[in-house]
Design a binder for these strands. Structure first.
Lengths: 253, 253
DNA sequence: AGCAAGTTTTGATCTATATCATGAAGCCAC
DNA sequence: GTGGCTTCATGATATAGATCAAAACTTGCT
């Protein structure tokens, strides 16, 4: 079982963990040869699970590693001048957190578990060394970072140009696509984050998020039961975010 | 003279162009040995200047190169579902544009000159090959991308949490710092972009940008004469953006 | 189970900023 | 230099979404 809740910290096991991990098709190992996956596997530390609310790394802390989420969900945020928290992203299984720490050798954000979460720790200096031996891993890493840059730019479009309905619809479709990519239902899922966190992330007040969702439910676009969301009318939702061009993109992470 | 307005397209010259470029301390060559700079130099094509309004690359176009701005200014934007342009960034000399194209092998944004602009074209496949031979170049590239990720996240904070005054102040201080880093005055500079473009970028209406600037002038924070801006009261401006922590960061690109 | 603390929903009101409208000032082409 | 076009400034008005308030629900704790 590649995703266990209490994996050993080191992995000198019979078989490669990455190789068996159901996420390897989405995570860094993508397009690596078996022997290369083993090499990657050897630098990865699998840590004990984080409980809800626990912190993976702090804003300002020295950077050594990037982390791949295996199970659960993380949020990243930074604390603004006025002391409020501004959420900059949510991370689902197979997604890589911490890349923004490379530049300055310290994390510019804090990463916190929204629920019980397991991660693979990838010491960056090892990873970087390994990219010298495995060009496709290097390319993969450039791609992951490039993707992050374009996703964040789509997020800037969302924050700068969209109204509350479009923001919430984009958010839900984005999650839907991420779940789908991982083999879960695209139309029925559970939000790991509170309404407040959604609002914070989207630049909206809690009350607005709540009202928009209620209205979406009335209009039979979605069905809401607490944190459980079902998308009833996918095509109408897509119309809302303007699926035509770039927004297809943001909904397709 | 390393920055000329009509450099030859190829560079089999006596001396390395990168080596002589006054931007090399800010651009990719940072921390490269002389011989490595020469190797980097050999893959770079110096293109004819773009005139105001000319396009460097189009959204959707196949990705081959990243570009370093040598002189002038670029903006990048994408066209939203509703057909409007959303500006995602402005690029000054020494800054690298096009990194977001790596992921998908096509540029997700359009890059357009705001004034006469010269760029160095760096074919990405060559650059990537070169990183195999020059580990510090690879590291440098990771850093540049990482920096872009954290800068964009600061931009998300700006768009999601700041009011009009804070947005405009952050924008001006950000430019100020970028000019300063290049050896220009930090307190007196010319905006290459129109009020409309500033507003588009910051998620504000043109009128709001205009009003905020007028008010800043009345309050003797800045002096405005068309596109010429002087920052009169730097510390007050810094207070406005909340220089305390993270915002120091965004003002320090 | 039962109580306290947090979260979500819903309603009423307020406000920052968008939008609309107009005139002034720059800027380019001929 | 003059006419036409774009950008900028400023006033008047409208509105999306914030804020305030309070009730209904969840969740976790002993």
């Amino acid at each position: 079982m590649s995703i266990s809740t209490a994996p050993s910290r080191f992995n000198s096991k019979l078989t490669s963990q990455c190789q068996n991990c159901s996420l390897s098709a989405l995570c860094l190992p993508i397009a690596l040869a078996d022997e290369d996956i083993n090499r990657l596997d050897q630098i990865i530390e699998r840590k004990r699970p984080l409980k809800k609310g626990e912190i993976l790394f702090h804003q300002g802390q020295a950077f050594d590693s990037v982390f791949a989420v295996r199970t659960g969900t993380l949020k990243t945020f930074n604390i603004t001048a006025s002391g409020e928290e501004q959420i900059t992203g949510f991370y689902c299984p197979s997604e890589l957190v911490g890349l923004s720490g490379i530049d300055n050798n310290s994390y510019p954000i804090t990463a916190k578990a929204l629920e019980t979460t397991t991660v693979c720790e990838i010491p960056f200096s090892h990873l970087e060394n390994l990219t010298s031996q495995i060009p496709s891993l290097k390319h993969q890493l450039f791609r992951v970072m490039s993707r992050k840059i374009s996703d964040d730019q789509q997020m800037m479009v969302l924050l700068g140009k969209k109204n509350a309905d479009e923001k919430v619809a984009s958010f839900l479709l984005n999650l839907s696509n991420r779940f789908k990519k991982r083999g879960y239902s695209a139309t029925s899922f559970r939000l790991a984050m509170s309404r407040g966190e959604v609002g914070n992330y989207l630049g909206l007040a809690v009350e607005t998020v709540s009202r928009v969702m209620t209205r979406f439910q009335k209009n039979e676009l979605i069905e809401v039961d607490g944190k459980e969301i079902s998308i009833i009318n996918l095509s109408e939702m897509q119309k809302l975010v303007g699926i035509a061009d770039d927004c297809a993109r943001i909904a397709d992470i």
